[in-house]
Design a binder for these strands. Structure first.
Length: 584
RNA sequence: GCGCUCGUAGCUCAGUCGGAUAGAGCAACGGCCUUCUAAGCCGUGGGUCGUAGGUUCGAAUCCUACCGAGCGCGCCA
């Protein structure tokens, strides 16, 4: 419809150019927007305002000229000039309810588009270190990323969802050592657990699984384990040196084969747990990408940068001159001990992404990683890849409240609130919805009490209830032994004469546009807000008008409007990963 | 100190490409169940869009400076 109006205006402008009213070179993009106020019609355009200056006419006069030059349209009831020179377009009733036919025809694909044109896009999200269960902070990235991916798919992109598993590096070694020490405890060893080790209860569970799989295989006398290990922090030593020495001892005593078994036990148990957790949250991936599998790519990436002249050596380390590409400082890619850095892996990973043929890459990161964007983009540019193909979306942390009271989270103590606990407490639907109801870069307060409440305060229930109400009407319709088909409904569409019916249909017609904007801007909250408005319009209508009236035409038409609403609610909720219950 | 993300009603937040009188929900107050689910609906009040300049027909939106909040600034991941 909007395109239709743009077309009308464009041909009007073309005509004004022909008769010399407008300069031939004036070629502004025609802007048509949805009106906020119904008295302004259904659509409005500001072309006259935008062109007034170059045409040397006042805006209202020019608007009048454009209006007279508009070709006739059977979709419009009238046009008006208003305010400083806006042109308002009023749709006629038929074109207003055309959308019902479209919705029935396209059903679960209503709102989908092909703006993505099958472009391959990768969405990488969550990617939390597999050193422990996901906590509530990861939940927001999970809900957001999953919805963004679904939105892009609905917009015609070929979407690949990926989780980058940080299965290399020091943190994982600390986990392996922690698992092994807990395993020794299970076999009766007594000692002070390292202050920098992973202390969460899940480590003990992994140790138990290790014991179940391998029995006594990894037992060593505790004196041998702690012999000549530098003191831990509580004993006046350095906690980093202490844990590093324990890792080295672990490798030494278990040999590389045994160490790998312990390491893999931890990795697999925890990745498995994360995978189950996310699956329970309705979040699925096409691929779980292992950092460790990049080993060769890392060297290749560094060599590539080297041959392009972007690497130099200093203080025994290899540095990437990222300052040439807008970064604050140069970055080490290979340490003086010969080990490559995490950043080097990340360069390789991003190179790998583009080598796999993704035309667009979307990374969803916690806001604390924002300092990383510049260097990754610098690396891409240095590798000859257009940095604009990478979009990084930052997700701010959610602060949990229980009513007025802030819920404290502390990772160190191991007593943090896990995503799983959150899901069990408030339910998947409320959690998914609440996480995406605010724009991602906005700080968010997450009130557990509100998310749990089954009342009108809770927007999730409000929207779901609208869907359930329509399902209920359909059950009543069947009980009353009325017959209804989409065809009957569409045939009776003239019976929709109320203003509220028109408002509701107009809102339905807006959905494809909202979906497209939400997809392009990676903003699922637009869907959440839209659904709330749609539910509100529906409740208003439903409350003041009976659907199942005796008169066949009115009943059939209203039922059609309800069914169309039901479809759009369902489509929208699905994109947010929220269920659409048929009764509540 | 430098950088990133922000600052909109008492609270939580929308506000799309710069458009008309800045919107929702909650909270507050007042109404509506004999009727398809009251998990709902209707109404009222509530604003210096952090501050000060600038850009223009027009600024919550764009630019600059400042104030305030959070985060980041490692040969950790």
């Amino acid at each position: 419809m909007k395109e239709h109006i743009i077309g009308l205006i464009e041909s009007a402008i073309a005509e004004l150019k022909n008769n010399g009213t407008l300069h031939a070179d004036t070629d502004p993009r025609v802007s048509v927007e949805n009106t906020k106020d119904k008295s302004h019609g259904d659509y409005a355009s500001n072309v006259a305002l935008a062109l007034a200056k170059s045409a040397g006419k006042n805006p209202r006069e020019l608007a009048q000229l454009i209006c007279t030059a508009l070709p006739a349209s059977d979709k419009l009831e009238k046009t008006e000039i208003a305010g400083p020179g806006f042109i308002n377009f009023f749709m006629n009733s038929d074109s207003c309810f055309e959308v019902l036919n479209t919705i029935f025809t396209q059903s679960d694909r209503f709102g989908h588009s092909n703006v993505g044109a099958g472009k391959k896009v990768q969405v990488e999200f969550v990617s939390a270190n597999p050193t422990g269960p996901l906590h509530v902070g990861h939940g927001r990235g999970a809900a957001y990323g999953a919805s963004v991916a679904d939105l892009l798919e609905a917009a015609g992109y070929d979407v690949h969802r990926e989780y980058y598993v940080n299965d290399a590096g020091r943190q994982m070694n600390i986990l392996a050592a922690s698992v092994w020490l807990r395993y020794l405890e299970l076999h009766g060893a007594k000692f002070q657990f390292p202050s920098n080790g992973y202390k969460g209860g899940y480590v003990v569970e992994v140790a138990e699984a290790l014991k179940a799989s391998f029995g006594d295989k990894f037992i060593h006398p505790i004196d041998a384990v702690f012999d000549n290990i530098p003191a831990d922090e509580p004993q006046g030593g350095d906690k980093e040196l202490h844990i590093d020495a324990l890792i080295a001892r672990c490798r030494e005593l278990l040999t590389s084969e045994g160490y790998k078994q312990v390491f893999d036990q931890g990795l697999n148990e925890i990745v498995g747990d994360i995978r189950d957790d996310l699956a329970g949250f309705g979040v699925q991936y096409q691929q779980w990408f292992s950092e460790a599998s990049l080993a060769e790519d890392v060297n290749r990436a560094i060599e590539k940068l080297q041959s392009a002249g972007h690497i130099y050596e200093s203080e025994g380390a290899l540095w990437f001159r990222s300052t040439d590409f807008g970064d604050d400082k140069d970055r080490v890619v290979c340490r003086d001990n010969g080990e490559t850095t995490y950043f080097a892996s990340d360069i390789a990973y991003h190179l790998n992404k583009f080598e796999r043929g993704f035309e667009q890459v979307v990374n969803i990161w916690g806001a604390d990683h924002h300092g990383y964007i510049a260097r990754v983009k610098a690396a891409l540019t240095a590798l000859g890849i257009d940095e604009n193909k990478l979009t990084v979306k930052l997700v701010q942390f959610a602060i949990l409240y229980r009513g007025q009271e802030r819920v404290q989270m502390s990772t160190r103590s191991g007593s943090f609130v896990t995503l799983r606990e959150l899901r069990e407490e408030v339910g998947n639907d409320a959690a998914r919805f609440f996480y995406v109801t605010r724009k991602s870069e906005q700080h968010m307060d997450f009130d557990l009490e509100l998310a749990k409440s089954e009342s009108k305060d809770n927007p999730v229930y409000y929207i779901q209830y609208a869907h359930a109400r329509i399902c209920s009407v359909m059950r009543k319709l069947a009980e009353a032994e009325y017959q209804w088909t989409e065809k009957d409904g569409l045939a009776a569409i003239d019976a929709l004469t109320l203003e509220q019916e028109r408002d509701l249909a107009t809102k339905l017609a807006l959905y494809p546009e909202v979906l497209q904007a939400a997809a392009i801007n990676h903003e699922p909250h637009q869907i959440a807000n839209y659904l709330r408005e749609l539910a509100s319009d529906f409740h208003t209508y439903y409350n003041s008008n009976k659907v199942l009236v005796d008169e066949d035409a009115v009943r059939n038409a209203r039922t059609a409007l309800c069914m169309a609403t039901k479809q759009v609610l369902l489509n929208g909720l699905k994109l947010l990963g929220v269920a659409a219950p048929s009764e509540m």
